[in-house]
Simulated scan of single mutants.
Amino acid sequence: MSVSRAKQRQAQDRINQAASLAKSLAKPFGGWIATFQEAIGMNAPALAERLEVSRNTIYASIRNEQAGTISLNQLEKIAEAMGGRLVYAIVPREGPVEEIVLAQARTKARRIIQRTRAHMALEEQSEGLRSEAEMVEELAADIIREGRRDFWQ
Protein backbone atom coordinates (compact mmCIF):
# COMPACT_ATOMS: atom_id res chain seq x y z
CA MET A 1 0.00 0.00 0.00
CA SER A 2 1.38 3.40 -0.96
CA VAL A 3 1.98 6.14 1.59
CA SER A 4 -0.72 8.24 -0.05
CA ARG A 5 -3.24 5.38 0.14
CA ALA A 6 -2.29 4.66 3.77
CA LYS A 7 -2.81 8.32 4.67
CA GLN A 8 -6.20 8.29 2.93
CA ARG A 9 -7.17 5.13 4.82
CA GLN A 10 -6.18 6.72 8.15
CA ALA A 11 -8.19 9.84 7.33
CA GLN A 12 -11.22 7.72 6.40
CA ASP A 13 -10.96 5.79 9.66
CA ARG A 14 -10.75 9.03 11.65
CA ILE A 15 -13.78 10.52 9.85
CA ASN A 16 -15.81 7.34 10.34
CA GLN A 17 -14.92 7.35 14.05
CA ALA A 18 -15.99 11.00 14.36
CA ALA A 19 -19.23 10.23 12.50
CA SER A 20 -20.00 7.48 15.00
CA LEU A 21 -19.50 9.83 17.92
CA ALA A 22 -21.38 12.69 16.25
CA LYS A 23 -24.60 10.67 16.09
CA SER A 24 -25.08 11.26 19.82
CA LEU A 25 -24.08 14.94 19.68
CA ALA A 26 -27.04 16.68 18.07
CA LYS A 27 -27.03 20.42 18.75
CA PRO A 28 -29.27 21.18 21.73
CA PHE A 29 -32.42 23.24 21.09
CA GLY A 30 -31.02 26.43 22.64
CA GLY A 31 -27.50 25.85 21.33
CA TRP A 32 -24.31 24.74 23.05
CA ILE A 33 -23.48 28.05 24.73
CA ALA A 34 -26.79 28.26 26.57
CA THR A 35 -26.76 24.53 27.37
CA PHE A 36 -23.22 24.66 28.78
CA GLN A 37 -24.07 27.79 30.79
CA GLU A 38 -27.06 25.98 32.25
CA ALA A 39 -25.01 22.88 33.02
CA ILE A 40 -22.35 24.79 34.97
CA GLY A 41 -24.70 27.39 36.44
CA MET A 42 -23.05 30.40 34.81
CA ASN A 43 -25.25 33.34 33.81
CA ALA A 44 -24.62 35.78 30.94
CA PRO A 45 -23.24 38.59 33.16
CA ALA A 46 -20.62 36.24 34.67
CA LEU A 47 -19.62 34.96 31.23
CA ALA A 48 -19.46 38.52 29.89
CA GLU A 49 -17.19 39.50 32.77
CA ARG A 50 -14.81 36.59 32.08
CA LEU A 51 -14.63 37.54 28.42
CA GLU A 52 -14.45 41.25 29.20
CA VAL A 53 -17.41 41.99 26.92
CA SER A 54 -20.94 43.29 27.50
CA ARG A 55 -23.92 41.10 28.36
CA ASN A 56 -25.44 42.13 25.05
CA THR A 57 -22.41 40.64 23.29
CA ILE A 58 -23.07 37.32 25.05
CA TYR A 59 -26.77 37.41 24.14
CA ALA A 60 -25.81 38.23 20.53
CA SER A 61 -23.37 35.30 20.51
CA ILE A 62 -26.10 32.95 21.73
CA ARG A 63 -28.43 34.22 18.98
CA ASN A 64 -25.65 33.90 16.39
CA GLU A 65 -24.98 30.32 17.43
CA GLN A 66 -28.67 29.48 17.14
CA ALA A 67 -28.75 31.13 13.70
CA GLY A 68 -25.59 29.29 12.65
CA THR A 69 -23.62 32.49 12.05
CA ILE A 70 -21.18 32.42 14.98
CA SER A 71 -17.51 32.00 14.09
CA LEU A 72 -15.54 29.01 15.32
CA ASN A 73 -13.03 31.41 16.85
CA GLN A 74 -15.72 33.17 18.87
CA LEU A 75 -17.30 29.89 19.95
CA GLU A 76 -13.89 28.60 21.03
CA LYS A 77 -13.24 31.70 23.18
CA ILE A 78 -16.64 31.37 24.85
CA ALA A 79 -16.10 27.66 25.50
CA GLU A 80 -12.72 28.35 27.10
CA ALA A 81 -14.18 31.11 29.27
CA MET A 82 -16.70 28.59 30.61
CA GLY A 83 -14.01 25.95 31.25
CA GLY A 84 -14.86 23.94 28.16
CA ARG A 85 -13.33 23.39 24.77
CA LEU A 86 -14.72 23.50 21.26
CA VAL A 87 -14.87 20.26 19.31
CA TYR A 88 -15.91 20.22 15.66
CA ALA A 89 -15.78 17.80 12.76
CA ILE A 90 -17.01 17.32 9.23
CA VAL A 91 -18.68 13.93 8.94
CA PRO A 92 -20.72 12.15 6.24
CA ARG A 93 -24.48 12.73 6.32
CA GLU A 94 -25.02 8.98 6.30
CA GLY A 95 -22.86 5.88 6.22
CA PRO A 96 -19.07 5.64 6.11
CA VAL A 97 -16.91 8.08 4.15
CA GLU A 98 -15.96 5.28 1.74
CA GLU A 99 -19.53 5.42 0.37
CA ILE A 100 -18.97 9.04 -0.70
CA VAL A 101 -15.79 8.05 -2.52
CA LEU A 102 -17.47 5.04 -4.15
CA ALA A 103 -20.48 7.09 -5.27
CA GLN A 104 -18.20 9.65 -6.93
CA ALA A 105 -16.06 6.93 -8.54
CA ARG A 106 -19.26 5.35 -9.92
CA THR A 107 -20.35 8.71 -11.34
CA LYS A 108 -16.99 9.13 -13.09
CA ALA A 109 -17.03 5.51 -14.31
CA ARG A 110 -20.60 5.90 -15.63
CA ARG A 111 -19.55 8.97 -17.67
CA ILE A 112 -16.56 7.09 -19.12
CA ILE A 113 -18.61 3.98 -19.95
CA GLN A 114 -21.43 5.98 -21.56
CA ARG A 115 -18.97 7.98 -23.67
CA THR A 116 -17.16 4.78 -24.70
CA ARG A 117 -20.44 3.00 -25.54
CA ALA A 118 -21.57 5.95 -27.66
CA HIS A 119 -18.35 5.79 -29.68
CA MET A 120 -18.59 2.02 -30.03
CA ALA A 121 -22.22 2.26 -31.17
CA LEU A 122 -21.21 4.75 -33.86
CA GLU A 123 -18.61 2.26 -35.05
CA GLU A 124 -21.09 -0.62 -34.68
CA GLN A 125 -18.87 -2.38 -32.12
CA SER A 126 -21.29 -2.55 -29.17
CA GLU A 127 -22.41 -6.13 -29.80
CA GLY A 128 -21.61 -8.53 -26.95
CA LEU A 129 -20.64 -5.95 -24.34
CA ARG A 130 -21.35 -6.61 -20.67
CA SER A 131 -24.08 -4.60 -18.98
CA GLU A 132 -23.35 -0.98 -18.22
CA ALA A 133 -23.89 -1.60 -14.49
CA GLU A 134 -21.23 -4.35 -14.43
CA MET A 135 -18.77 -2.20 -16.32
CA VAL A 136 -19.40 0.81 -14.05
CA GLU A 137 -18.80 -1.26 -10.89
CA GLU A 138 -15.58 -2.73 -12.28
CA LEU A 139 -14.23 0.63 -13.45
CA ALA A 140 -15.22 2.37 -10.19
CA ALA A 141 -13.37 -0.32 -8.22
CA ASP A 142 -10.30 0.18 -10.45
CA ILE A 143 -10.43 3.95 -9.93
CA ILE A 144 -10.51 3.52 -6.16
CA ARG A 145 -7.88 0.76 -6.12
CA GLU A 146 -5.51 2.96 -8.14
CA GLY A 147 -6.03 5.76 -5.62
CA ARG A 148 -7.03 8.19 -8.37
CA ARG A 149 -8.37 11.50 -7.18
CA ASP A 150 -9.28 12.97 -10.54
CA PHE A 151 -12.84 11.67 -10.28
CA TRP A 152 -13.84 14.80 -8.33
CA GLN A 153 -13.32 16.88 -11.47
Rank of each mutant, 00 (worst) to 15 (best):
S2M: 03
S4R: 10
R9S: 15
Q10T: 15
Q10R: 15
Q12M: 14
Q12C: 10
Q17Y: 06
Q17D: 13
A18M: 08
L21S: 08
A22G: 03
K23D: 14
S24D: 13
A26M: 12
K27C: 09
F29G: 04
G30A: 12
G31I: 01
T35G: 00
T35Y: 00
T35M: 01
E38K: 15
A39T: 14
A39M: 13
I40N: 09
I40C: 09
M42F: 00
M42C: 10
N43G: 10
N43R: 08
L47A: 02
E49F: 07
E52V: 08
V53M: 07
S54D: 00
S54T: 01
T57C: 12
A60I: 06
I62N: 07
N64K: 01
G68D: 05
I70N: 10
S71I: 05
L72R: 10
L75P: 04
L75F: 11
I78K: 02
E80P: 05
A81P: 06
A81C: 03
R85I: 00
R85M: 01
R85A: 02
R85V: 01
L86S: 13
V87P: 00
Y88L: 04
V91F: 11
G95M: 07
G95Q: 04
E98K: 13
E99T: 15
I100H: 11
A105R: 12
A105F: 07
R106T: 11
K108R: 15
A109Y: 04
R110Q: 05
I112R: 01
I112G: 02
I112A: 07
R117I: 10
A118S: 14
L122F: 13
E123W: 14
E124N: 13
Q125K: 15
G128C: 11
L129H: 04
S131T: 15
S131Y: 09
A133F: 09
E134W: 07
E134K: 10
M135R: 05
V136A: 07
E137I: 01
E137N: 11
E138S: 07
I143P: 11
I143F: 06
I144D: 03
R148P: 03
R149M: 10
R149P: 02
F151G: 02
W152G: 04
W152D: 00
